[in-house]
Design a protein around this nucleic acid. Structure first.
Lengths: 192, 192
DNA sequence: TGAAAGTATGGTCAAATGACCTTGTTTAGC
DNA sequence: GCTAAACAAGGTCATTTGACCATACTTTCA
């Protein structure tokens, strides 16, 4: 599990082997079963999370019971509830596993120490945040301007491999459309 | 114009007077008239922008001519197209002035130099980015889960002073609903 | 392997929404 | 201060969307 992570870090091409080992040394491996939570609404997010294998989702459930998905986190990506983690405040989102997943955790103190110790790691972390900002702006624009059909097309194009890993209702919950609308779109596409 | 900016920085309470003067010294003041652009789709974003007075908007126009607003930037906030600025790539968004505005600009090289020279400034910049991430997550959730009426209520509550500064059609373009829907909501509210 | 839970699809219907057009009012800027 | 442009709101109508329900199929895991 750690080797995959170390390969990932090495591929970023900005860290010494020593730094990579140091970062790994503070990671806590953990396995999540399908549907298992790593963070629940109201809890405080105490870890940075790296997904080695599997698929997590960040979502919110309204009082009426509707789920809305903010983010899917597949293997070789990071996740957490930023606000809860940074400010140690109750989280507004939940994170759970869609597939059985292997993840790595770092305690906040440990992670902050690493950022302070290893400037190149801090740079990498900054880069990751900034790339998330790009993507989230792009998604915002799509949600605002695209029709349901375009949203789905866009999703399939940006995440081709997700299609087979996710139930449609989750794709609908991510796109902000109803399952009914999504099946209608797919039905229409089959006609062509 | 610079004094207001220096007051803003001083209020952040993390920079020495010397640092504040240094940062100001590299700023380029500029005035934008109503409807004047500071960045157009396709151009490269070459500056960090601080709004001293006035109101800017970041938006995108679809091929059909529909405008979608990603962000309003009132006085004492920062703006830019992150992706275009960071990677010096053509911008997908435009930024223009809704009100006559006084802004400050920094060239990328100058700004990067400041970040490197003044660690506390880098920290402040990181903080601002992260706060933007919080807000954008929250907005994403609202767009995904709220009804048009809730979106409008949420907007008025979060930005009470914007109501009088923005034409309704811009609020609609920000919320991702049609002007018609927005006027209907307002009409219904008057009935009560 | 078999029962239970989860999933995709379809039907029907009511409600919400947007497109288009008109009108009266307000605002901006010379 | 005046004129042209921008704006809010209303009417109408077609379309889209979601809620609710039933059904058939698939997956999971005990």
């Amino acid at each position: 599990m750690l080797t995959e992570f170390e390969k990932y870090l090495a591929a970023q091409d900005c860290l010494t082997n020593e730094a990579i080992r140091r970062i790994s040394s503070l990671a806590i491996p953990r396995t999540l079963r399908r549907n298992e939570f790593i963070l629940r609404t109201g809890e405080i997010c105490r870890h940075k999370i790296f997904i080695v294998k599997g698929l997590l989702r960040t979502f919110n459930t309204t009082v009426e019971g509707n789920e809305h998905i903010l983010q899917f986190s597949p293997e070789l990506t990071w996740t957490l509830d930023v606000e809860s983690y940074d400010q140690q405040v109750p989280s507004r989102f939940s994170i759970d596993a869609i597939e059985t997943s292997n993840i790595l955790l770092w305690h906040r103190n440990d992670f902050n120490r690493l950022l302070a110790e290893i400037p190149a790691f801090k740079q990498l972390a900054d880069q990751i945040i900034v790339r998330n900002v790009y993507r989230s702006r792009q998604r915002m624009l799509t949600i605002l301007s695209a029709t349901p059909e375009e949203k789905y097309a866009d999703f399939i194009q940006s995440h081709p491999n997700f299609r087979s890993r996710l139930p449609l209702r989750m794709i609908a919950a991510y796109l902000g459309i109803s399952l009914k609308t999504l099946t209608r779109i797919r039905h229409a596409q089959l006609q062509r």
